[in-house]
Write a protein that binds this DNA or RNA. Structure first.
Lengths: 195, 195
DNA sequence: CCGCGTTGTTGACACATCGCCAATAGTGCT
DNA sequence: AGCACTATTGGCGATGTGTCAACAACGCGG
């Protein structure tokens, strides 16, 4: 058996990419560390050596999957609320549809939702998205907790709606876009002020 | 060792109640059939005998948890849209807050989201809720798929928002109520017509 | 070119959980 | 009381996971 010796960073990267592919195609419980090791052409023990526990590996995967380019959030048009809502929704749908399968698997927690650590990682991603929404619609820099909660709820709407489009296929992109844009304008004008 | 022999229905019911309690307090992976058997004062093999696999048992649990009283959905006030939206939202928040912990655990899939069978059970519950929403706001009996998709997305918003209230505590019930009522009216008037 | 130490890598052991099934022993009936 | 029915048990085999001592690939000095 020929062993190949890689730089730790390279090996870690390689195993991680295999894990991303597997966790992106099957739920958590249906992916064994043996699968990851086999596909990476590596002993199972090495996976634990680099990532600790299986859940730790999964946390890394989810982190990568949910890390979306934050770019182009600053260069939003300076038009009125409706225009800004339109463009932020379009940006969100672009990001989601680009790597839809892995994104959906991650946001659905691929079978580990309810676990405290996994929930925390997902919550962070939703927080980032919610803050992006708030900034895009011209909210203050330091929003009160209630306002952020409302923004997170809106992100939840966006997630569910995107699933109806990408997973179920019962909505078109235009319908999703309209639903989210209208909802966002309504929330900004009539709900957010209550916080 | 003293054995006690029960009627199959009674034993099944007893084991199920224990499973509901455990799955309601910990995610799927952290509940072993050994735990269920021990708390039920029963051999582990008996759990498999009555429910088959562990996932089958979990499916039963989720089914029970998400089965909410469909009552009082017919006796909604016949006022205008805003009034009907108000009362359906109030009813939803009542149901959710009554058995909040178990309901949240179930709708979050307690660590099995992504699994096809579990997703199906949850999807059925959301379907029922979505149809209830559509009927409450006076929609047709046989809504087109797109319309049901939009209604399901709204249910998703309700779920996320309820979590911000019950789990995070950053929103008050009044704020949640306002958010959901306003959103529902907006969707019925300006989004649903597109389907 | 050859030992030699560093360390990436392996294989196996211990433990936990699950599905399954033959053996066991309550329970009601004659 | 004896018996048949079946609810119930306990253990076996398979699978998955974390850990760790041992192994070997690669760089380096002689």
């Amino acid at each position: 058996m020929r062993r190949r010796r890689l730089e730790p960073d390279a090996r870690r990267e390689q195993i991680l990419s295999v894990a991303i592919r597997l966790f992106g195609s099957k739920p958590y419980a249906q992916v064994s560390t043996t699968d990851v090791a086999r596909d990476a052409g590596v002993a199972r023990g090495l996976v634990n050596h680099y990532f600790g526990t299986k859940k730790d590996l999964y946390l890394e995967v989810v982190r990568v999957m949910l890390t979306v380019p934050e770019v182009a959030l600053e260069q939003l048009p300076q038009g009125d609320l409706a225009e800004r809502a339109d463009s932020i929704v379009g940006w969100f749908l672009d990001v989601v549809s680009r790597h839809s399968t892995s994104w959906l698997a991650a946001i659905g927690a691929g079978g580990m939702a309810g676990d405290a650590d996994v929930d925390e990682v997902i919550a962070e991603a939703i927080d980032i998205a919610a803050d992006g929404i708030l900034r895009a619609v011209g909210m203050e820099r330091r929003p009160p907790p209630a306002l952020r909660g409302m923004a997170r709820a809106y992100v939840g709407l966006a997630v569910y709606t995107a699933q109806e489009w990408l997973k179920r296929g019962v909505l078109t992109r235009d319908q999703v876009h309209a639903l989210l844009a209208v909802s966002l304008v309504t929330m900004v004008e009539r709900v957010f002020p209550q916080a």
